[in-house]
Computed example of a mutant assay.
Amino acid sequence: MLFLGDSITDGWRGSGLAVWNSAFAPLKAANFGISGDGTQHVIWRLRHGELDGIQPKLVVLMIGTNNAGGPAADIALGIKAILADIREFSPKSRVLLLGIFPRSERPDALRAKVADVNKLIEPFDDGRKVFYLDIGAKFLTADQTLTKDIMPDGLHPNAAGYQIWADAILPTVKHLMLDDPTLLAPTFRAPSSSPRVAKLQASIATGKVGAGVKALEKLAEDKDGATARSASAALATVAAWKDGLDTEIGSLRAEGDVFAAAELAGGMVTSYTGSESVAKGYHDLLLEMKKDPAFAAGSEYDKLEAMPAEARKDPRFAKLVDAFVKKYPTTVYAGRAKGLVRR
């Protein structure tokens, strides 16, 4: 895995080194943070070979505070371009996209700008390759003060700040580092105040959605009103997540990307183990899509896309792409394959 960002990420080599060595070094993490970088610098790095020859399982991305002098929409577009570049140059990588950290001791225009950017980038979370997490509140006191005990200059964490950062993302990092790329699960903004519901939320977040939903449905009828309400809220989160994935499966099929749609359906079969009727529905859908000729094309394209950027410079790769396009000229994958060739 690697961390990609600016001086705040670069600081893992300094104030955060002890925390890094404890939390992330065992995960074979690399630090690609560079002091002073904005979104435009990360884009330049990615497009000039920074990921050539490597395929990190996970990229932790936090960037944009050095662009705070510009419009929030432009910062968000820069982050969107970075995500697209990671997808191009390291297609198998997942991305943990962090909300930009709060800055300034007290709320001000800069902090408001950061909050605006975070609202714009949160929808970049697609539940498959990009996962958004905003941990900014963990750095603030109840009255929204960013204390010098955590960020002495109102921007860069000290050792205590890096510990907060590590503690806040490590469970998600470990989850996203799992080997099963088809694992699908909703995320919850915060653990429930009900210990029983919080335990189920944690289980669901590891992909045990079907069993977790069944247990939550029972708790939604609990005699304790607070527990019942919390369980109902958790069920609503899962339902919204499921509806979003169902919509995406339909959209992908309509666009001709049957392979990606099938991957999602397969992931949902696994996630809904323990809820046989739901799992069967997705399984039947998966079998139906596998009969579509576009599925075979997508499967072959997936292998081309998985080849690292360095390999795409080889003239033999262009020949593979040409052969693929001739074989599947009318599929959505033909145009995408042409875009893989770096000329």
Rank of each mutant, 00 (worst) to 15 (best):
L2Q: 01
F3M: 13
G5F: 04
G5E: 03
T9H: 02
G11K: 05
R13H: 15
G14F: 14
S15D: 15
N21R: 12
S22E: 14
S22K: 13
A23D: 01
A23C: 02
F24C: 12
F24A: 11
N31S: 10
S35H: 07
Q40C: 11
W44C: 03
W44D: 13
R45A: 10
H48C: 09
G49E: 04
L51A: 04
L51F: 11
D52Y: 15
I54G: 01
P56M: 08
L58E: 08
V60K: 02
I63C: 03
I63S: 08
G64N: 10
N66T: 09
A68W: 06
G70C: 00
D74N: 11
A81V: 14
I82G: 09
D85H: 11
I86V: 14
E88K: 15
P91T: 02
L96C: 06
F101T: 01
R106C: 06
R106L: 15
P107E: 11
A109S: 14
R111N: 05
K113V: 05
K113T: 11
A115F: 02
L120V: 06
I121R: 01
E122W: 01
F124N: 07
D126S: 09
R128F: 11
R128T: 13
F131W: 06
F139R: 07
T147L: 05
D149T: 14
P152W: 12
P157K: 09
N158K: 11
A159F: 00
Y162E: 11
Y162D: 10
Q163G: 02
I164P: 05
W165N: 02
A168M: 03
I169W: 07
L170M: 14
L170V: 10
P171N: 08
P171D: 02
P171I: 04
P171M: 08
T172N: 00
V173F: 00
K174F: 00
H175T: 15
M177P: 01
M177F: 03
L178A: 14
D179G: 10
D179A: 15
D180C: 14
P181M: 10
T182R: 09
P186W: 09
P186K: 14
S193C: 00
P195L: 02
R196F: 09
A202F: 03
S203M: 07
T206G: 01
G207F: 00
A211H: 07
V213N: 11
A215P: 05
A215N: 04
L219T: 01
A228H: 08
S230D: 13
A233R: 14
V238P: 06
V238I: 07
A239R: 10
K242A: 10
D243G: 00
T247W: 00
E248D: 13
E248A: 06
S251H: 09
A262V: 14
E263W: 03
M268L: 15
M268E: 13
Y272I: 09
E276A: 15
S277R: 13
A279Y: 02
K280C: 01
K280T: 15
L287N: 13
K290G: 13
K291R: 15
K291C: 03
G298M: 11
S299T: 15
R312S: 14
K313E: 07
R316V: 08
F324S: 03
T330N: 15
T331D: 07
T331N: 01
V332K: 08
A334Q: 00
G335D: 08
L340Q: 06
